[in-house]
Write a protein that binds this DNA or RNA. Structure first.
Lengths: 353, 353
DNA sequence: CTGTTAGCGCTTTCAG
DNA sequence: CTGAAAGCGCTAACAG
């Protein structure tokens, strides 16, 4: 096989330079003396062609600097080859590992990832999901702040996988921090604490609800006093701000919605000259700060990256229509990571030793 | 104007349910009794139509749940309406704010954002940029690890804006941490330090080179000893690992490539019972940890979010062909943020006070 | 195994 | 101001 019609395609064969359109399948076909279908197949289904044809075409294509146009391919096949991931706040350290996992896995599967940040605002999330949904094959909603009804509505339009949001019937991956949190409460109870407080995060967060109720249930089981203190956003500042309030509550230990809050609390307590863990114990959640806090934070591990990978797998399965009933709900286990912010509560000074 | 031909388009008018294709411009046109061109115009160039026609069509479209297909539009116009941002590591806290800025600004401009994580690997970055580049109108390469030649090659194919990489002739936004670092050295010199060390980051990082040479130059100006110690990746662990090495060097202060390294160093030093800032002073860079370290880190501010916004503006201008010579290089100033990790060097014990 | 022929859904001249 | 028709670049039956 050799190149035919390699005659003058008037001006079209000029070497590419800034501004010239990239070569199309048509040009490769002409240059190689085959039909466009053949060129198309050489790229999408090479097994249908003679190996020699494939190599020849690929060579010609390469020489011309041809690359299949993803947009055209998307329109023709109806498969954009992209996924969307939307999160409430990229800057919250819980999400980067998650996003990283998503992007890596999607990439392996030949997909690209569109990212959306809703800025913790449900209305903005709605718009984003609609906008991104139209240009993707499916979306992953991490810690969605939208109402269940709204989510269901979106899910009826296109494949959607939820992360840390438990809605019956929808594919979802849940990081089961509840078990880790319960473990944390047990740990505190066994240490001798009789009054603990839970510093809550965003009220519309499923994770927050899970953690709060898991902590409460376990506390009840041990018969220890359980109080809830609300922090606004899950931030360092908010954590530092609730320190005083905790001290006045009579509690000797706190579990916080996440590590950021715990870290802030650590600072707030330090400012009040309260020693951690000697005077007060703290347990965070998510394990996104590793041992970088001072002292190193005891927390509940959460494999954000794994969740991202699982979410992509689930989404891909859903897209392909392989998502069978049972596997709709993937649960990722967690456990308590003991570092240095918990210890026995300080007993009455005179009783020490 | 009223609906004509609202007759049976056989089965096509069935209400949408999971699995049914979304309505096309054709259906809206039929339902409204107009041509597809008119529907198209109602969405893309309403000013060409009678206001009454527009509202009518929009209403019909809304009733049918019609939304223009972005892919088809992209193919037809040649403008995908998407931008790409590729970073070496999303999990590095320097990038989330940057990405956040990019996504927010792009969204305002009606664009969506494709995200790529190169995992600090140049080869992977090359593949990513090529892949994402094909489906976007342009790309933002943040802290690119690719060679200058490779970057130029990509830039010759499509609009590209660099962040923290200074390549002549290419549009770029640079966070001028060099000035902040120099300020940091002056600060240390004025405090009385006579030997400082720079803990370097990725060798292929432009920022690293900038910071290192800025520090060296300023140190020379003050006639103080300047040493460089190499950390592998810019991580907490790497920072903790170099602590001992620094202590043995005779230096009394360190500037680190970034805050993560500084934070690790803080921990490494604490482990060796070296008090900061009393026994050793530290200055970080990027200001991504705010006052969350212990003690609060003195560092060089860097407005990642602003850089992201500026990058999008530059990219959009480049795409539109408005990028004029002079504005090709946007520099974002930085300054030293003094917190609590720097102080006078401890003089010979007997000489104290 | 390869070519022909229709589109995918939308935009865009060019008429009227 | 609106309609008809011709694509954008690629894929997908259907023949051969």
């Amino acid at each position: 096989m050799e190149a035919r019609k390699s005659d003058c395609r008037t001006l079209r064969s000029v070497k590419q330079h800034r501004g010239s359109r990239p070569p199309t399948i048509r040009q490769v076909a002409d240059e190689a003396g085959v039909s466009t279908s053949t060129v198309s197949r050489a790229f999408s289904r090479p097994e249908m062609l003679l190996p020699s044809t494939v190599t020849f075409i690929l060579e010609v294509a390469d020489r011309l600097g041809y690359q299949p146009n993803p947009t055209a391919r998307a329109l023709s096949t109806g498969r954009p080859g992209t996924l969307a991931i939307v999160v409430p706040d990229i800057a919250n350290p819980f999400f980067p590992p998650l996003i990283r996992g998503v992007q890596a896995r999607a990439d392996e599967a030949g997909y690209s990832v569109l990212l959306g940040d809703s800025d913790e605002r449900p209305e903005k999330e709605v718009v984003l999901v609609a906008k991104l949904g139209a240009r993707t094959e499916g979306a992953i909603l991490a810690s969605s702040r939208m109402s269940e009804a709204t989510i269901r509505e979106h899910a009826s339009q296109r494949p959607i996988v939820l992360v840390n949001r438990d809605i019956e019937g929808l594919p979802r991956v849940l990081i089961d921090t509840a078990s880790g949190v319960a473990e944390g409460v047990s740990h505190l109870a066994e240490l001798g604490h009789r009054h603990i407080v839970y510093v809550s995060g965003p009220s519309s967060s499923w994770s927050n609800q899970q953690r709060r109720s898991a902590a409460r249930a376990r506390a009840r089981r041990f018969g220890i006093t359980f109080t809830v203190v609300a922090a606004r956003r899950p931030t360092y500042e908010a954590g530092a701000a609730v320190a005083e309030q905790l001290l006045g509550s009579g509690a000797t230990a706190a579990l916080t919605f996440d590590d950021l809050l715990a870290q802030g609390l650590l600072a707030g307590l330090a400012k009040q000259s309260v020693a951690v863990p000697d005077d007060f114990s703290i347990i965070g959640c998510d394990d996104v700060l590793a041992a970088t806090t001072h002292p190193p934070l005891t927390t509940v591990s959460a494999q954000g990256g794994d969740a991202g990978i699982a979410a992509v797998d689930l989404l891909l399965a859903t897209i392909r229509g392989e998502a069978r009933g049972g596997e709709l709900r993937v649960v990722i286990p967690t456990s308590l990571v003991q570092r240095a912010t918990t210890s026995q509560p300080r007993v009455h000074p005179s009783a020490v030793r």
